[in-house]
Design a protein around this nucleic acid. Structure first.
Length: 521
RNA sequence: GGCCUCGUCGCCAAGUGGUAAGGCAACGGUUUGCAAAACCGUCAUUCGCCGGUUCGAAUCCGGCCGAGGCCUCCA
């Protein structure tokens, strides 16, 4: 059993080039912090967080860097629109990004370098590229000359001629080749001084691609084991980053290029499109989290293999009555299985699911006595070893939960007085396994808890009171004679309370062991 | 025009040479005062279409049809 990972460069799954115990470096292109994050921005972080979790579980020591682009055309423009500074806008949007990551349980990022902090090193790289003849100055700008790099185009399998042939871009007369790209952009008089940096080439600011080269090389060094990002970054961003980095260092830049699929959705007429600000069909993370838990959103991302476009289904995004795309509504329903399971576990074992101790590493001692548990463990690992197939892994989790529910039913585990102790032991073993595997995926099995802006504790107490009173109604009704009108009306009253709460987004479940409540939307 | 994906049950989705995981929805049943939940059972002889290779193909090859991404900022 060993890990295989698909690389965009080789176009095939290749055996992972390091052994457990070794250090793995990972760099993923982060956001330009000029707008609140939409759910598409979370796909990469969730996937690579899961990659790190799995690698760590296998025993690798992973260092993961995600950059923050805090100087850029869009940022300048947006700050001007809002009448604020680039710095203030960037700080605010960076905070939004961090909150989103936290909500999705993305905890593995070790460094968040900001582009503006690495300008001197970028200048250094550009100077050397120029000295080596890979770059040329033109009117205050500095461009990378792709014709000097024989490897240019190897990541995306394109060559300059092809690109020139299909060129829709108007040719910048300063460039020697149409495919040349800016390493340094000369300052323009209409730009605020805060985005103007001094350099040997004159005042200006770095081009888009150079920042990732600088931050990844400085913090991780070449070769980086895993470089990730969205599929849309493949060209030109990663192609250019690769070219300039290898020309600068003279060595291999990246071992494995991983690209995740993009979010897609369908409008009312059934036309497919990706989610993009330019199309107006974006769903901000904070808006999504009003209607489903961060864990449910993470689950939604993970249930599809990372290289496949993730299908949000139909979404009438202009209609306030449909705050969520169909795919998220269904993911929330599917995820409820996990939430209910976690509640049951807490009721049976007396420990919240996300506080259960479970092995953190693959080589940690664990005894799986039940064949079903052994098989699940095996299959989960095979899926994850096969290019991080989280979709298959999630399936294993569902099967395990189903199996454990059956055990709990058979052993009457919900009621301590009647519980079968042998089955309880098996149940505990299985639950710990679920917890271990869920943790690799970063899933906590938590449902929606933050619907109310008010006092959560008070709400919980009021609900408890309501449940208690309703329980008395039902108890009275049950003891009343079968045909008594009182019995019927009391039950009707109890049902009405339950129905009304359901409309408010609270589900009541009457179990033999008592009534429980849960927020459903 | 060039490069590249994808098309598996009503919907989502795993499976990439050995005879179709899983989830949602739906339908029976157990249970319940009734629900809900949980459990039991049913739910693709078939993987866009047509050919080919093979003992054997959803999986490989060719063609066709359909959807999408990138080539300009984009996770």
């Amino acid at each position: 059993m060993s890990l295989y990972v698909y690389s965009t460069l080789s176009r095939c799954k290749q055996p992972f080039h390091k052994r457990p115990g070794e250090t793995v470096t990972m760099y993923v292109c982060g956001p330009t912090v000029y707008k609140p994050s939409h759910i598409g921005h979370m796909v990469g972080p969730v996937i690579f967080d899961t990659v790190k979790r799995y690698l760590s579980w296998l025993g690798y020591r992973v260092t993961w860097v995600v950059n923050i682009t805090d100087v850029d055309d869009k940022l300048i423009e947006r700050a001007r629109e809002l009448g604020t500074t680039v710095g203030a806008l960037a700080r605010e949007m960076t905070q939004d990004y961090f909150r989103c990551l936290q909500a999705l349980n993305v905890t593995g990022i070790d460094h968040f370098p900001r582009a503006t902090e690495y300008v001197p090193f970028m200048v250094e790289i550009i100077q050397q590229l120029e000295a080596q003849g890979y770059a040329y100055r033109a009117d205050g700008d500095v461009y990378f000359d792709i014709s000097r790099d024989p490897d240019y185009g190897k990541l995306c399998h394109r060559d300059a001629e092809q690109m020139a042939a299909g060129a829709r871009l108007e040719i910048n007369p300063k460039k020697r080749n149409p495919g040349d790209f800016a390493l340094w952009k000369a300052a323009r008089p209409d730009e605020p001084p805060e985005v103007r940096f001094d350099s040997p080439f004159g005042p200006g600011r770095p081009g888009w691609h150079i920042e990732c080269s600088a931050m990844s090389l400085r913090l991780l060094g070449a070769p980086i084991d895993i470089h990730g990002g969205g599929l849309d970054l493949q060209f030109p961003h990663h192609e250019n980053e690769l070219a300039q980095s290898e020309c600068y260092t003279g060595t291999e830049f990246v071992k494995i290029w991983m690209h995740n699929g993009l979010l897609k959705l369908r409008d009312k007429d059934g036309h497919e499109a990706k989610m993009a600000g330019s199309l107006g069909n974006v769903l901000n993370v904070v808006d999504a989290l009003r209607h489903l838990s961060g864990d449910a959103l993470r689950f939604f991302i993970l249930k599809t293999h990372y290289r496949t476009p993730i299908d949000l289904g139909i979404w009438d995004w202009h209609n306030p009555a449909t705050p969520l795309p169909q795919g998220l509504v269904e993911a929330r329903k599917a995820h409820e299985n996990f939430v209910r399971f976690a509640e049951r576990v807490r009721a049976v074992l007396g420990i919240p699911f996300d506080q259960l101790p479970a092995p953190q590493r693959a080589d940690e001692a664990r005894s799986l006595t039940h064949p079903e548990h052994q098989a699940a463990f095996q299959r989960f690992r095979e899926y994850m070893d096969d290019d991080f197939n989280t979709g298959g892994a999630v399936g294993v989790l569902f099967e395990l939960v189903h199996h454990l529910n059956r055990l709990a039913d058979q052993g009457h585990l919900d009621d301590a007085a009647t519980a079968d102790t042998a089955l309880l032991q098996t149940f505990r073993e299985g639950v710990v396994l679920v917890r271990e595997l869920a943790n690799i995926l970063g899933l906590t099995f938590q449902g929606l808890t933050t619907s109310w802006s008010g006092d959560h504790h008070l709400v919980a107490q009021l609900l408890q009171l309501l449940i208690e009173l309703r329980g008395q109604l039902r108890d009275t009704a049950k003891t009343a004679p079968k045909e008594a009108p009182l019995r019927t009306s009391l039950f009707q009253l109890a049902d009405r309370i339950r129905a009304r709460l359901h409309e408010l987004g609270i589900a009541l479940e009457d179990r033999p062991t008592g009534t429980t409540w849960r927020i459903i939307h």
